[in-house]
Structure formats: structure tokens, C-alpha cells
């Protein structure tokens, strides 16, 4: 049996040995708990096999002027569009001050290959696939893409012009391996 006087024996500066032990034990348990939470949170991040699908090679030789194809990169749709000279001219004609997310078509294509518009087919609003890549689909009020979910309109440089989306369609990192083969990622 420990009496109150025994516990408070050896008090210096009003701090008991037991106070130190309490703080040390709770801190140790706290650090331990935080260390366990870290892997539990991190397991939610993309796993190695998901990250491994990060480059895709595509052959663009069959895409005629004015046509577009839909392909896939990191499980997300990608639009590859061969713009007509009229569409390029239309995109150039727009003053940057009219744009919600101001970018020129040159900033969105590679030098000398400005007819190749490569973007993710993921609406920057809430992630639907916009229409307009396939023949006969609704291309919206600005001749580019139209997202049916919440009514975002993109122009011929896939820039947001109308509707709730905040940004232009994302241009993924890509390189021309040759005139007809592109590596995305």
C-alpha cells in the first residue's frame, strides 16, 4: 500500500516522478499511434502497378485532317485531334482576354506540329469524357468538345469557353518519337 506521503516523497519543483512517467508513456504511445496511421493512410495512394501504366505509345498516322481518336493513358481517356487549318485559324483569332484559362494554341501544341492537339479527355469540371472526338458527336458552341454532364463547351484548342469547368482540357506530357508515333507520359 502506497500512501499519499510516499508518492509525493522526492518532489522537486512541484513535479512528481510519476508526472514525468505519465507524460513519457502517453507521448510514446502517441508517437506509436501516429507511426501506425502513416501506412494506413498511405495504402490508399496509387499502388506500384497503377503507377507503372504511366507511358503509352500511339500511332497517329491514320488520323486524317479534321478527325480525332480516343485512346487511353493511365486509365484516363486521351483525345488526339488533327486540326484543320480553319480550326487552327479560329483558335488563333480568339483574344486571350476572352478566355477563362488564357493559353494560346502554340502553348498547347508542339512547335511545327500545331495541327496535333493532344489532350486528356477528362472534363476539368468533374471528370466526364467530353463529346466531339468521334465523328458526328456534338462539338459544342465553339467547335471543339462538349461535356454532356454539366454543359461545358471547349473550343478548337480544347480551351474552356462556356459552362462550369474552370480549366482548359489538360495537355499531358508527350513527345513525338517520329512524325507518326507519339509517346504520352
Amino acid at each position: 500500500m502506497t500512501s499519499e506521503t510516499d508518492i509525493s516523497a522526492g518532489i522537486e519543483d512541484g513535479v512528481r516522478r510519476r508526472d514525468f512517467i505519465n507524460i513519457a508513456a502517453v507521448s510514446f504511445a502517441g508517437v506509436g499511434a501516429a507511426a501506425v496511421v502513416l501506412p494506413l493512410v498511405n495504402q490508399m495512394n496509387p499502388s506500384a502497378d497503377v503507377l507503372a501504366q504511366s507511358t503509352t505509345e500511339i500511332d497517329i498516322s491514320a488520323i486524317q485532317s479534321g478527325q480525332a481518336i480516343k485512346t487511353s493513358w493511365r486509365k484516363q481517356p486521351v483525345f488526339v485531334r488533327n486540326l484543320t487549318p480553319a480550326e487552327i485559324a479560329e483558335a488563333k483569332k480568339v483574344p486571350l482576354s476572352d478566355l477563362r484559362d488564357p493559353q494560346t494554341i502554340d502553348e498547347r501544341t508542339k512547335p511545327g506540329k500545331e495541327n496535333w492537339l493532344i489532350t486528356l479527355g477528362v472534363c476539368t469540371h468533374l471528370g466526364c469524357v467530353p463529346l466531339g472526338a468521334a465523328e458526328g458527336e456534338n462539338r459544342g458552341d465553339f467547335g471543339g468538345y462538349f461535356c454532356p454532364c454539366h454543359g461545358s463547351h471547349y473550343d478548337t484548342a480544347a480551351r474552356i469557353r462556356k459552362g462550369p469547368a474552370p480549366k482548359n482540357l489538360v495537355v499531358p506530357p508527350y513527345e513525338f518519337n517520329s512524325d507518326t508515333v507519339v509517346t504520352i507520359g
Binding site: 490508399m44 495512394n45 496509387p46 499502388s47 497503377v50 493511365r74 486509365k75 484516363q76 477528362v122 471528370g127
Partner: peptide, 13 residues
């Protein structure tokens, strides 16, 4: 979003 989905789009994870 990527953390919630465990990927870049909804998939197996």
C-alpha cells in the same frame, strides 16, 4: 482525389 481513388481514374483500387 488520387488518394481517394488509389489511381488516376476509378478502377479496381
Amino acid at each position: 482525389r488520387v488518394w481517394l481513388l488509389g489511381g488516376f481514374a476509378p478502377d479496381n483500387a
